[in-house]
Simulated scan of single mutants.
Amino acid sequence: MEQIRILIIEDEANIAMVIKLELEYEGYTVEIKEDGRSGWEAIQKEEWDLILLDVMIPHISGIEVLRRLRAGDNQTPVIMLTARDAIVDKVTGLDQGANDYVTKPFEIEELLARIRACLRSAAGKKDQKDDDTLLTFLDLSVNTKTREVKRNGNQIELTPREYDLLVYLLEHPKQVLTREQILEKVWGFDYFGETNVVDVYIRYLRQKTDKPFETQLIHTIRGVGYVMKESK
Rank of each mutant, 00 (worst) to 15 (best):
V197W: 01
K90I: 15
F106V: 14
T76L: 02
L138I: 14
V55S: 04
R5D: 01
D35E: 12
K185I: 02
K232M: 09
E171A: 07
N154G: 04
Y201L: 07
E214T: 12
A113N: 10
T159S: 11
Y163T: 08
D95W: 09
V167S: 05
I218P: 14
Q155T: 11
P77F: 02
T29W: 12
R161Q: 04
L119P: 04
V18R: 08
D139H: 00
V224C: 01
N152T: 14
I115E: 01
I182A: 03
L134R: 07
I4A: 08
V149K: 05
T136I: 12
G188D: 05
T29P: 02
G39S: 03
K208S: 10
I108C: 09
A13W: 03
N143Y: 02
E230I: 14
T144C: 05
T29F: 13
N154I: 15
K145N: 13
V65S: 07
G93S: 12
I9F: 05
L170H: 05
T159L: 10
L169H: 09
K208M: 05
Y28D: 10
L177T: 01
D73I: 05
R67M: 06
A13S: 12
D130H: 10
E24F: 13
L69S: 00
E180H: 09
T215I: 07
P160V: 04
I9M: 05
E10Y: 05
L81C: 11
T159V: 07
P77Y: 04
D95G: 15
T159C: 05
I43P: 05
I6W: 03
I57N: 05
E64A: 10
I156D: 03
V224T: 15
E110A: 14
E41P: 02
A16M: 03
A16W: 04
D210T: 01
D139W: 00
R161N: 03
C118Y: 01
Y204P: 03
K90W: 09
E24R: 14
G188C: 01
V167Y: 00
R37V: 00
L53W: 12
I218V: 11
L53P: 06
L183Q: 13
E22C: 08
K126N: 11
E107L: 15
V18N: 06
Q155G: 09
H59Q: 14
G36Q: 04
L53H: 08
K208L: 13
G193H: 00
Y204G: 02
K129R: 12
Y101E: 10
R70Y: 06
L21D: 06
Q207Y: 06
V176K: 10
Q155K: 11
A113P: 07
